[in-house]
């Protein structure tokens, strides 16, 4: 089990990681997300021992790193998958994967599992991006680390490759049964592969929870906006947790004890839209997305809400529509 307590990292006098606390179960995948410059990569480097920590401790059972006792990376028994893959250009795929191994059994096993058999003797510069990523992953896993760090492993790959590869990596990590911390700036990636996700801003962890909870019950508006399209609709919260808004009533989940005047978090698919000549709302713009359409709809008091609707439901900008809240789960409500 990995435990991080009150971890801080300073670069000269800039605090890039601020008082981080987390624990990781034995085969759990934790996704760390945040905008550029939020300290994601610094956390990984601190965990790997590539930058010194200034406060707190990192504990992995058989070692414990503190500001006074900075353990060098090679003593930490961890694995790291780098953004630019960091394959050794002078070594073959097989030699890369077995870099420090005498026993080649795990090398062969991971080559087999990740489908790299045909590339065994190739040099890294002849491989495609996806192949390089598989080799980097195989190298990390074959060395049997007791936990794994992944630094934006998919950011250098084509969009088409990302979907498949992210599942392949998740399956491999689960098969190896090691805890992993995976850093990304892609919220979709974070929501889909993580067991838990942590959202970072300016070196601080804003929320650490399951993807479902982070998405539907974000602790603040920053997290709400970062994880996906978010609209905020004013409403009045009653004591029975019903909130009444201009487009109807719904159940609410107050965040941080919000009461009375609140803003309800609406995701585009929490709403339903129907073309109606007598409707009180009006479509401002429509965006075709293939399987769906995204609309911006103006309510009668001028609020703009984003609504996602089936692709056959075609409404032109300027048309009048009726809008209602279709979701059945309680909606997050923030103090206005």
């Amino acid at each position: 089990m990995l435990t991080v307590k009150n971890l801080s990292v300073n670069y000269v006098d800039l605090k890039v990681v601020n008082n981080l606390n987390l624990t990781l179960a034995d085969d759990e995948i934790l996704m760390l997300v945040g905008p550029t410059g939020c300290g994601k990569t610094s956390i990984l480097k601190a965990l790997a021992g590539l930058v010194p920590i200034s406060e707190g401790e990192i504990n992995l059972g058989n070692w414990r790193a503190t500001p006074k006792n900075q353990i060098p990376p090679e003593k930490r028994n961890l694995g790291m998958v780098f953004q630019d893959f960091a394959l050794f250009p002078h070594l073959s795929v097989e030699q890369n994967i077995g870099f420090r191994l005498k026993n080649y059994e795990p090398v062969n096993r991971w080559i087999e599992r990740l489908g790299l058999g045909a590339l065994r003797d190739k040099k890294p510069n002849t491989l495609s991006g996806g192949q390089k990523q598989r080799v980097a992953l195989a190298r990390t896993l074959a060395h049997q680390p007791s936990f794994i760090l992944l630094d934006e492993p998919l950011s250098n790959l084509d969009a088409a490759l990302k979907d498949d590869l992210r599942w392949e990596i998740r399956q491999a990590l689960k098969a190896a049964g090691v805890p992993a911390i995976w850093v990304t700036h892609d919220q979709e990636e974070a929501l889909s592969v993580g067991d838990r996700i942590g959202i970072l801003r300016d070196g601080k962890l804003e929320q650490l929870d399951t993807p479902e909870n982070c998405y539907s019950q974000p602790v603040n508006r920053f997290v709400a906006r970062f994880l996906g399209e978010a609209s905020f609709l004013p409403g009045r919260l009653a004591s029975d947790l019903t909130v009444s808004t201009i487009i109807g009533d719904t159940k609410a989940f107050p965040i941080n004890g919000a009461e009375h005047e609140v803003d309800v978090l609406l995701r585009p698919d929490d709403l339903k839209l129907r073309a109606d000549q007598t409707g009180k709302c009006e479509v401002v713009w429509a965006r075709y997305e293939g399987s769906a359409r995204l609309y911006a709809v103006k309510t009668e008091d001028g609020q703009i809400l984003k609504v996602r609707s089936r692709h056959e439901n075609r409404v032109a900008p300027g048309q009048k529509v009726n809008l209602n809240i279709s979701t059945t789960h309680p909606l997050a409500a923030f103090q206005r």
């Binding site: 790997a48 021992g49 590539l50 060098p72 990376p73 090679e74 930490r76 028994n77 961890l78 694995g79 790291m80 780098f82 953004q83 630019d84 960091a86 394959l87 050794f88 250009p89 002078h90 870099f99 420090r100 190298r139 990390t140 060395h143 760090l149």
Partner: peptide, 27 residues
Amino acid sequence: IDSSLVNAARVLGASPNEAFKRVTLPL
């Protein structure tokens, strides 16, 4: 030589000396 190559060798368990001998020097 990408600095991440040396880092990669280090997290795979190589000491600074070994990383120099097996990665930096051959390159």
